[in-house]
């Protein structure tokens, strides 16, 4: 019985406590750079499209809200022909970012994406693409990968030896 009275008193004392509510639209909350908000596609330091259309983000997505189609330019550089995220399904779990081998897909500290029409939550590549490298300013997948693309021949990637001359028998 006494405990009931005490809890009544404890609660009543909160009349004079500071309120913790953040008055959101006027007061902005601090979102860390690692916050999992709106998803973007970034560019590598050379300004090229980072996404290589490997489909790993799509397969990692637990709600299957990413779909894309791979294609190649004339020099063998792979990129997505289309890249679509259905944000009406997205749960912002960040698995796509974890799965991405090229740091192309990144979640940003922006959560203000409300729409009156659900259809507007379907983002295409043009809506997702940003001009910078995002959180990872230095990485460029193509400098590491073994395939040749325009401007980078076989043997020119990091840690690669020049191509073997198969017509030579020199050891």
């Amino acid at each position: 019985m006494l405990s009931l009275v005490r809890s009544l008193w404890e609660v009543f004392r909160h009349t004079f406590a500071r309120r913790v509510t953040v008055q959101y639209p006027e007061q902005k909350a601090y979102l860390s750079p690692r916050y999992r908000g709106r998803i973007v596609l970034t560019r590598d330091p050379d300004g090229g499209e980072r996404c290589v259309a490997c489909n790993l983000c799509a397969v990692a997505c637990p709600v299957a809200c990413i779909s894309l189609q791979a294609t190649e330019d004339e020099h063998g550089r792979r990129y997505p022909e289309f890249f679509r995220i259905n944000f009406s399904r997205c749960i912002f779990c960040g698995y796509c970012e974890e799965a991405c081998p090229t740091y192309a897909i990144q979640l940003t500290p922006d959560c203000e994406m409300g729409e009156y029409k659900r259809q507007n939550l379907v983002y295409e590549k043009t809506d997702l693409m940003i001009d910078g490298p995002g959180k990872y300013p230095d990485y460029n997948f193509w400098r590491v990968a073994g395939v040749a693309i325009g401007g980078k021949d076989k043997g020119q990637a990091e840690n690669e030896l020049p191509p073997v001359d198969t017509h030579s028998l020199m050891p």
Binding site: A58, V63, A64, I66, S67, N86, R89
Partner: peptide, 16 residues
């Protein structure tokens, strides 16, 4: 079982 993009592949036509 890993089929991806179920909820996005037709979203450009209709989100429903």
């Amino acid at each position: 079982s890993r089929y991806s993009g179920r909820t996005a592949m037709l979203a450009n036509i209709s989100v429903h």
